[in-house]
Amino acid sequence: MADAIVAEGLVKTYGSIRALDHLDLKVSEGTVLGLLGPNGAGKTTCVRILATLLRPDAGRVSVAGIDVLAHPQRVRQVIGLSGQYAAVDDNLTGYENLEMIGRLYQLGKATARRRAHELLERFELADAAKRTVKTYSGGMRRRLDLAAALITSPPVIFLDEPTTGLDPRSRLGMWDVINERVRSGSTLLLTTQYLEEADQLADEIVVIDHGRAIARGTANELKRQVAGERLEITVALDSEFEAVRAAVEKVCGEVPDADHLTRRVGAPAGSGTRTLLDVARLLDAAGIEPLDIGIRRATLDDVFLTLTGQAAEEDETKASGSATGSRQRTGRGKTGRDETEGVR
């Protein structure tokens, strides 16, 4: 199968920050590549280069067999881009946005109109077609933004964090739409900081950090790299959260990952079900009944933490005090946008 997207040795530097550090990517036609990484890993920079918005300092890029640096305008005819910040016009209606973008893709008037209506229908925006985008919810805006990228049914699609900031229901809706798109034969490059999203949508995953690919493979291949089982507990009440955290720490013997927002506590379950029973007894004695408790096989989250955690530590010992080492990192931060990444 031919490669729809090829990037070789991409380098991009902003001042002392190396956003991309000899990054290589290959995406076969009709497949989905998930580009996974924390904030500031270089995901957006990579997409901007592939989508002709930014020139790399070094490296070669081709999309659908066209050299991006030599023929950007030809590349623009075969790509669709949906960015991190939903780039639709607030003051236009949903229909007006799509029609305008269709016309700017050089579709004829009639075709642009027909496509706009079709996409509004398919993305469940037909009822809102005549409202200005200002009145749309976050999920609707993203759907419209994605629809705009698909106006010409482009063979290559770039989606930069398509679901960042969406509520869970809207996210599921976006996944459906994206999956449908891929089944129709487009090649897709998707960046995300959500591991489950890459798991759900991508055939192949490249984990990047500090502008370098630190792992690649299918979701299963990556999961296999992290052995072991994890204990996961979700509690119903805020007041119980701290007690659960303490119990898990006591039994597992290390500081657990505790997410207060979702009231979820997780840690490696060293002794498998034994660990589960020990924690369960402690919670029972304290009169706490968790919403959910169980042993999980490694998820991409674990892969991600293991890989990027190690990378971060290496960096600190190697380059402590240097400007690159001081780049702000939020680890597995799932909220907020890439603050250090874009061009400013």
Binding site: T52, Q73, I101
Partner: peptide, 13 residues
């Protein structure tokens, strides 16, 4: 600032 210029720049216009 609203990112719509990125959209325009990615189009064959």
């Amino acid at each position: 600032t609203k990112g719509i210029v990125d959209r325009f720049r990615s189009l064959p216009m």
